[in-house]
Simulated assay, not measured.
Amino acid sequence: MRSIYKVPMTALFAGLLSLPAQAADQLSGQISFSSRPAVVAVLYVPGAGAHNETPVVDQVDKQFAESLVVVSPGQAVEFKNSDAVDHNIFANDIRKNARFDVGLMPPGGEQSIPADWDENTLVRVGCKIHPKMRMYIASLEARFHKVIEFDSRTREYPLTLTGVPSDADTLVVRIPKYDVVELDLRKGSQWTVALTKKGQPRGEITLARAAP
């Protein structure tokens, strides 16, 4: 007769508690713009991430409830219409191989769209019925990410990043229509980098690693 060895629960919990937690840092600083601010930014540490839950983007008062969501390449985004009017969500960015059109979405409608376009890109999403609506989908592998929304009336924004992996080499800053910024986290503990659009300065980001 085959015997079954049972691991005591106390031993099992002790083993789980002994697993080393991933060390994390906190970075703080500021994002500033020299003129009208951008709409949104995503800051992230490249690497295999765990975007397990499907991001949900709702539509309320003829606006997207989210300015930007992050998905792993190929992961789906769930769009909902909690508005009292129809919407027609679409994207048409040939350079990034991102083209979709969900057609007419009535109130209460839902539609899932896979982010099956180029990796490491921001794709703008709009509504054919309401042209002022816009949001972005960032398709990328990220160990850590943070989305920052901006206000058109404010040029300076305090910034705190909690949970940045201590062994991270790079922090990437992506802002729609801006040049991509990469901060080398291996060099020093303070960074100041210009934000540019087509090579022209539009602001800067400053960060410092918090003291332990």
Rank of each mutant, 00 (worst) to 15 (best):
Y5I: 10
V7Q: 10
P8C: 03
M9N: 12
A11C: 09
A14S: 15
G15T: 12
S18V: 10
L19P: 04
L19S: 09
L19V: 08
Q22A: 12
A24E: 13
D25I: 02
D25G: 05
D25L: 11
L27G: 00
S28M: 09
S28K: 11
S28V: 09
Q30V: 14
I31G: 01
S32T: 12
S35D: 15
P37C: 09
V39R: 15
V39Y: 11
V42I: 06
V45L: 01
V45M: 01
A48S: 14
G49H: 06
A50F: 11
T54K: 05
T54M: 11
V56A: 06
V56H: 05
Q59E: 14
K62I: 11
F64S: 05
A65G: 12
L68I: 04
V69T: 02
S72D: 13
Q75W: 12
V77W: 12
E78G: 08
E78T: 14
F79C: 04
K80D: 11
N81G: 01
N81A: 07
V85E: 14
I89F: 11
F90D: 12
D93C: 05
V102S: 15
G103S: 12
M105I: 09
P106H: 06
P106W: 06
E110D: 09
S112M: 10
S112P: 09
A115C: 01
D116L: 05
L122C: 06
L122K: 00
R124D: 10
C127E: 09
I129G: 13
H130T: 13
P131W: 10
M135C: 12
Y136S: 03
I137Q: 06
A138M: 08
A142V: 04
A142Q: 03
F144I: 01
H145V: 00
H145L: 03
I148Y: 00
F150K: 02
E156M: 07
L159Y: 03
T162K: 14
T162G: 06
G163L: 05
V164I: 07
D167V: 01
T170K: 13
I175Q: 04
P176G: 08
P176L: 02
K177N: 14
Y178M: 04
D179L: 04
V180E: 15
E182W: 00
D184C: 03
L185E: 02
R186C: 05
S189K: 15
T192K: 15
V193H: 10
A194F: 03
T196E: 10
T196V: 06
G199C: 12
R202Y: 08
I205W: 02
T206G: 10
R209Y: 00
R209K: 13
A211C: 07
